Computed example of a mutant assay.
Amino acid sequence: MSIVSDIKERGDEAVREWALKLDGAEPTRAVADHSLLPKQAVLDLADRVERWHAAQRPADIRLEVEPGVVLERKWLPLQSAGVYVPRNLVSTLVMCAVVARTAGVEEIVVCTPPAGAGLVAAAAELLGFGEVWALGGPQAIGWLAYVRKVDKIVGPGNQYVNDAKLEVWRDVPIDLPGGPSEVVVVAGEGADPHIVELEIAAQAEHGHDAGCTVVSTLAEAEEIAPEHLVLLGSAEADADLVRNAGAVFVGDYSPVASGDYATGGNHVLPTGGWARSTGGLGLETFLKPITIQRLTREGLDLVRPTVEALAAAEGLTAHAAAVQR
């Protein structure tokens, strides 16, 4: 039985047992430690993240598709969200929790491993988030899904956290699968070798399993569909041609680290080739669309023949009867 399935079956008791076994500590509210928190940097990042993501809000739409047949599509925030923050990564707290609040999510619950929880809790306190738990690993994901029962779980983590997110996905939506961090540098003609080295070294800091690749053409990069794509030299001209990447950084003065920490663009991005079909975390991650349909008597009369013909073809006689009013 997996950690997640054990928590699904036994609840808080299982969470406590796994936390003691793996974290060496019982689940508890994290106590803020402001001693090492770069407060102004956190505030600056949060301001840019909020402004950039607020601009992403999709418009509600209304269309009278036929006389007397009106459709509306409205975007509404989720009621609750669980945010997983890897050890010490206050920037990830900002990328997830600030965006959730900007979207209008009312209940935001943060989990982070006990080691380093004080720093994350300090950043949360600075930004006005009150609920941070010193609870890490798969047990945190299971707790968010099956004890707190949040509407969605977001945030990156290691292989075990990612596996746990994929396991709960059938019951609680997640943002996206996340694996080892990646960068592909397209070093076109005239690219500065020193800039290439800087980007590779920065990405390698994420660990031995980080993907650090240098190619010479966009086609090679597109085949990989990386989390981060850097275009240097003549490759800068290809920025508008990119289809498969989580985030694109163009030119000598656009390091990936600026996006990780400062620009306001989100750094929770698809890895492992998922950028072919999935984008990074954005405001829409915490929103859901609802369609509202209104028909007048005249509108129903107009669409009734369509309903009757299709219902007959599909053998659904009650559907045809339902439009006889």
Rank of each mutant, 00 (worst) to 15 (best):
S5G: 09
R10Q: 12
G11L: 04
D12A: 12
E13P: 06
A14E: 03
V15L: 13
D23P: 06
G24L: 07
A25M: 03
A25E: 08
P27N: 05
R29K: 14
V31I: 11
V31P: 01
L36K: 02
L37F: 08
K39L: 10
V42K: 00
L43W: 08
A46R: 09
V49C: 13
R51I: 06
R51P: 02
R51D: 02
W52D: 00
A55M: 04
Q56S: 06
R57W: 01
A59V: 10
A59L: 12
E64A: 13
V65I: 15
E66N: 03
G68E: 08
V69E: 00
L71S: 07
L76C: 14
L76S: 14
P77G: 12
L78H: 06
S80T: 15
A81G: 03
A81Q: 02
G82P: 01
V83R: 01
P86S: 07
P86N: 07
R87P: 01
N88Y: 04
S91C: 03
L93S: 00
C96N: 02
C96D: 01
T102E: 04
G104T: 09
V105S: 03
V110D: 06
L119R: 09
V120L: 08
A123P: 08
A123K: 11
A124W: 07
E125T: 13
F129S: 00
V132P: 04
L135V: 08
G137V: 10
I141E: 01
G142N: 01
V147M: 12
V147R: 11
K149C: 13
K152I: 15
I153R: 08
I153F: 11
G155D: 05
G157Y: 03
Y160L: 15
V161G: 03
N162I: 02
N162M: 05
D163K: 06
K165Y: 00
L166H: 10
V168N: 04
P177W: 03
G178Y: 01
G179W: 02
S181K: 05
V185E: 09
E189C: 11
V196H: 13
E197R: 09
I200E: 02
Q203G: 02
G207C: 12
G207Y: 10
D209C: 08
C212R: 09
T213R: 12
V215H: 07
S216L: 15
T217W: 10
L218I: 15
A221D: 00
I224P: 02
A225D: 09
L232F: 09
G233Q: 14
S234E: 10
E236S: 05
N244M: 04
V248K: 03
V248S: 02
V250F: 13
Y253T: 11
P255G: 12
V256Q: 03
S258K: 05
G259T: 02
H267F: 06
V268E: 07
T271P: 10
G272Y: 00
G272S: 05
G273L: 07
W274S: 12
W274L: 13
T278A: 10
G279E: 11
G280E: 10
G282L: 03
L283F: 13
K288G: 12
P289Q: 04
I292Y: 03
R294L: 08
L295V: 07
L295D: 05
L295Y: 06
R297N: 14
E298F: 11
D301K: 13
D301V: 01
L302K: 14
V307F: 07
E308Y: 15
A309L: 11
A309S: 12
A311M: 12
A312F: 14
A318N: 13
H319R: 07
A320Q: 05
A322T: 14
